[in-house]
């Protein structure tokens, strides 16, 4: 903190914040915070609905691409600056993945590390002050008279009070009471991409599908016997056709098939778990910060720290679980191959 640049940056941030607060707010009290699971639509671009999460995703991508390119632009044997930071991060990831997957970490590294980096940067960008609280009020059929401009979600407890200053303003402007418009929600410009269910779903699908790919690459077609293990039951029917009935074999075959079905369901469950774990944590974090902001002036601060921790932990867990599942899929399941040799 001795670095004067840090102080200059903090002061500049405060000044910019003050300017935004004094000049850009139209009517802070008029809007209620938007808490919507589905991302709000900011505007329509040639038939494509652009959401805050997509805008933030583009920002996140720009940050990551700049980091990726500038950190390795001229690699030195003795690292310094950005290269050092990037190398340290990559080395930590390598150590982590090596601890989980052993020497196979190289196969899984690209996907798991990319997931980690994308998720952690997304989560942190979602925590930038202003993300979720600076936005526009959207016009729609119900609200044709919404004010234009950029708004900050203020300290007015509009979220809790049913009658807001917006109504009072409308009343003061002579709008008859029965024609009062409903409060309008603020659509933030920035919102963490991970709090839009599409990104967690995309990552979960990539993770689970690539797990199957690696499993099949490691074990060939035999990998699928993990889910569709009808070998014993087919053997039972083959034996029955020849005339020996082994009832025990039949029941074991049924159990095998059932275990396979359970594996299949749990594989699908992994997609849901991955998706909702990430989405739920980040979205809940945003909602909690918002609600705390409306309850008491400084209450969000400890939760803000907690959200930083959660942001890191979720990225970490997503990557670690991806590697762990991939390792499980590529490992030979010893029991079956053992049995196959005996028969």
């Amino acid at each position: 903190m001795r670095n004067p640049k840090v102080w200059i940056a903090i002061i500049a941030l405060l000044v910019v914040g003050g300017v935004i607060k004094t000049w850009l707010t139209f009517s802070v009290d008029a809007v209620r915070a938007s808490v919507a699971i589905a991302p709000e639509i900011l505007f329509n671009l040639a038939g494509f609905d652009v959401t805050p999460t997509i805008i933030t995703l583009i920002i996140v991508m720009i940050i990551i691409i700049l980091l990726a390119v500038f950190s390795t632009r001229n690699l030195q044997l003795v690292p310094g600056g950005l290269q050092n930071i990037m190398e340290t991060a990559i080395e930590q990831l390598i150590n982590l993945f090596e601890g989980i997957a052993g020497p196979k970490w190289r196969d899984f590294f690209t996907i798991a590390a990319s997931i980690f980096i994308l998720v952690i940067v997304s989560n942190f960008v979602g925590l930038i002050p202003g993300a979720g609280s600076i936005g526009i009020i959207k016009l729609d059929e119900k609200h044709p008279t919404a004010p234009e401009g950029i708004f900050i979600l203020g300290d007015a407890p509009a979220f809790i009070h049913t009658t807001s200053l917006f109504h009072k303003n409308q009343l003061a402007q002579g709008v008859p009471e029965q024609e009062l418009e409903e409060e309008q929600a603020l659509v933030p410009i920035l919102r963490a991409p991970t709090s839009d269910i599409n990104l967690p779903l995309a990552l979960a699908l990539v993770s689970v599908i690539m797990t199957q790919v690696y499993g099949m690459r490691a074990q060939g077609l035999r990998y699928w016997t993990r889910f569709f293990s009808f070998g014993r039951i087919i053997r039972f029917f083959a034996d029955a056709f020849k005339g020996h009935f082994k009832i025990g074999e039949f029941f074991f075959g049924l159990i095998d098939a059932f275990v396979g079905a359970v594996e299949l369901v749990s594989e699908l469950g992994k997609i849901i778990a991955f998706t909702f774990r990430l989405f739920g944590n980040i979205f809940a974090g945003e909602v909690i910060l918002l609600i705390m902001a409306f309850l008491f002036f400084a209450l969000p601060i400890p939760f803000y720290g907690l959200e930083f921790f959660v942001a890191f932990i979720q990225a970490f867990v997503f990557a670690v679980l991806t590697v762990a599942f991939m390792r499980l899929a590529t490992a030979e399941h010893g029991g079956e191959s053992h049995e196959a040799q005996h028969h």
């Binding site: 997509i54 990037m86 779903l201 990539v206």
Partner: peptide, 24 residues
């Protein structure tokens, strides 16, 4: 939206692999 997010992830993955993982 899903495809947008997926594409974003794939671009990030490709760029990271090409510019960061391999050289580092």
């Amino acid at each position: 939206w899903f495809l947008t997010q997926l594409t974003g992830f794939l671009i990030v993955l490709f760029i990271l692999r090409q510019f960061t993982y391999k050289p580092i």
